[in-house]
């Protein structure tokens, strides 16, 4: 077990899967000579050559479509979006084609495609480069959506995504590329898609959070443990679609209280869906209404002081936790 960064974990996942399966190739902007805008693909051009690490013109729809075509005839492309915000340009290819070709062909053409890259808020990247893009994709039947939180998740989930026969939207986080954690070296290590993880065990209240928001929730949980002796359980869904509802419901049935924290805008966000299935599946187990802590329903401001207010702060998470626990 080595301690490596989230970035290195992704790089190792790509390298191992390319070694394991000749059909896996990478395609995207700046991924070869430059090693990726965030250096996730560093060293892979040198190791695997231009045939398997394809630098593209700036054409998100075009290169995603090329990936889909290659996937239709048996290759397993990993498409990099320099940031996931640019995937909006490829929305028709992803939503109308990657997600539907298998269905519309009566199962004849599986699309084993991964679209990966960073998404969510970072540091002063402003409105067009800070969006929590998962909400654009998890609504679409046919897509799987993954948001890894730890370096271990990043490696294990990316390897599973590459081995999966469905199109997988794999959204990393710019702010997490540098975090370190223990990651298994075993090339057979994977984390199945569709399995949540209880990342912190607790008795009194469940928080559902993923990616960067998990770490803020963790700080809040530790602070409340010290100040009020509150025992907070944190469940990380890891895969947003298909979502492991059972693990989340089991936790809520145990703690009887739930808070969902997400960085994106709240309206019809991930928290809405999670709060909804908790209400449907565990209503009688709840001691308080499910609380959501979400990003403001405004584009991400550029100014630093406003940016801080846009995403949920530790204080707002603590407030929500106190509220569902009826702590004054």
């Amino acid at each position: 077990m080595a301690v490596i960064t989230y970035r290195e974990a992704l790089n190792h996942a790509l390298r191992e899967e390319m070694e394991r399966d000749e059909r896996v190739f990478l395609i995207g902007e700046e991924i070869g000579v430059y090693g990726g805008a965030y250096k996730v693909t560093q060293g892979l051009l040198e190791k695997f050559g231009e045939r398997r690490v394809v630098d593209t013109p700036i054409c998100e729809s075009g290169f995603t479509g090329v990936g889909i075509g290659a996937a239709m005839v048996g290759l397993r492309p990993v498409v990099e979006m320099m940031t996931f915000n640019f995937a909006i340009l490829a929305l028709d290819q992803i939503v109308n084609h990657a997600a539907k070709i298998h269905y519309m062909s009566g199962g004849q053409f599986p699309i084993p495609l991964v679209v990966r890259g960073p998404g969510g808020p970072a540091h002063q990247l402003a409105a067009q480069h800070s969006q929590s893009m998962e909400s654009y994709f998890y609504h679409v039947p046919g897509l799987k959506v993954v948001r890894p939180t730890s370096p271990r998740d990043a490696k294990g989930l990316l390897k599973s995504a590459i081995r999966d026969d469905n199109p997988v939207i794999f959204i990393e986080s710019e702010t997490l590329y540098g975090i370190k954690g223990e990651v298994p070296d075993d090339p057979d290590f994977t984390i199945p898609l569709g399995q949540a993880e209880v990342k912190r065990e607790g008795r009194d209240v469940t928080v559902i959070a993923y990616a960067g928001m998990y770490y803020r929730v963790l700080e809040a949980a530790e602070e409340l443990e010290k100040s009020d002796g509150l025992s907070v359980e944190i469940v990380d869904p890891r895969t947003l679609r298909p979502m492991d509802k059972e693990t989340i419901l089991a936790s809520v049935r145990k703690t009887h209280r739930a808070v969902v924290a997400e960085s994106g805008a709240g309206f019809a966000g991930m928290g809405s869906e999670i709060a909804s299935f908790i209400t449907e599946g565990a209503f009688d187990d709840l001691d308080a209404p499910v609380e959501r802590v979400t990003g403001a329903n405004a584009p991400m401001p550029y100014a630093r002081n406003l940016e801080r207010l846009k995403t949920p702060s530790k204080e707002r998470i603590i407030e929500a936790l106190r509220k569902v626990c009826y702590l004054g």
Binding site: G62, G65, V66, G67, G69, A70, A71, V73, G74, H97
Partner: peptide, 9 residues
């Protein structure tokens, strides 16, 4: 683009 992907493959 799919046609180009087929050709690349």
């Amino acid at each position: 683009p799919h046609a180009v992907g087929l050709a690349y493959a």
